[in-house]
Design a protein around this nucleic acid. Structure first.
Lengths: 123, 123
DNA sequence: TGTGAAACTGGCCGGATGGCCAGGAAAGCT
DNA sequence: AGCTTTCCTGGCCATCCGGCCAGTTTCACA
């Protein structure tokens, strides 16, 4: 493709974990079009770790519940989620019910908020 | 000192500029050991832009809308919000409708998610 | 083999939600 | 004075949501 219209992307790292920072630096260091920022340099974008708040007992959510939860966070209705996952609306409701129970939420909005707070999902 | 068989690094993008996001996604998609996060997936690190977190001025929410939004994020129903703010359920619906419109959301859950993403509210 | 968990499906139903219509009252700006 | 914005309220109604009941299948584990 064209290489002259794409300005270089400068990335800066703001990562506490030195091992992760090293690995990212190594991986990103030799990609054409991407460069790591020098000290004090203004970067195009920054890579940060959103070191999740405490998620003590990694609330046991099943894979399917996580699927439904993710689509809920995208604003999907039960019908949309059902279509997306190729299951019936009843099944979606079943999983939503389990999520409300496990997350101790009063409704789907509360469930998404709780999950986001606990780092179960990323908004 | 176990030999960590370098777990895959999952990156999520929080970038407003779609062109930049596309370029980054394309560049990062071909690197071994790095993968982009799917919806709702927990990411190892997040790539953000400096001024990405500021809400565009044009999505100005009124004080009352912010009140309703905050209570929505707490999982409150229209009835609960009405009691909390000493207004009628109809008025709550009115503000919720304005929020859905301004935040370009499909429902109250989507509205809360959008607001949290844009930093309008803090979960 | 049985026992349990997970996923899936259905019906029923009260209540919540959101869109539509209509209005009124208070505050500030030109 | 007009005018605009925000906030407030009401009715009506189609749809969605969530809880309740019931069932089947599959698969891992004891």
């Amino acid at each position: 493709m064209s290489e002259d219209i794409a300005p270089e992307i400068v990335l800066s790292l703001e990562i506490d974990d030195p091992a992760l920072a090293d690995r990212l630096a190594a991986l990103l260091g030799n990609i054409a079009g991407v460069r790591l920022a020098g000290p004090g340099e203004k970067a195009t974008a920054t890579i940060v770790t959103r070191d999740a708040r405490i998620m003590p007992d990694d609330i046991a959510l099943t894979q399917r519940e996580l699927d439904v939860l993710a689509l809920m966070a995208e604003g999907g209705s039960n019908k949309m989620i059902a279509r997306q996952l190729n299951i019936s609306v009843h099944t979606v409701k079943f999983h939503v019910g389990s999520l409300l129970d496990k997350l101790d939420a009063t409704g789907r909005t509360d469930a998404v908020a709780h999950a986001a707070r606990r780092g179960v999902i990323e908004l």
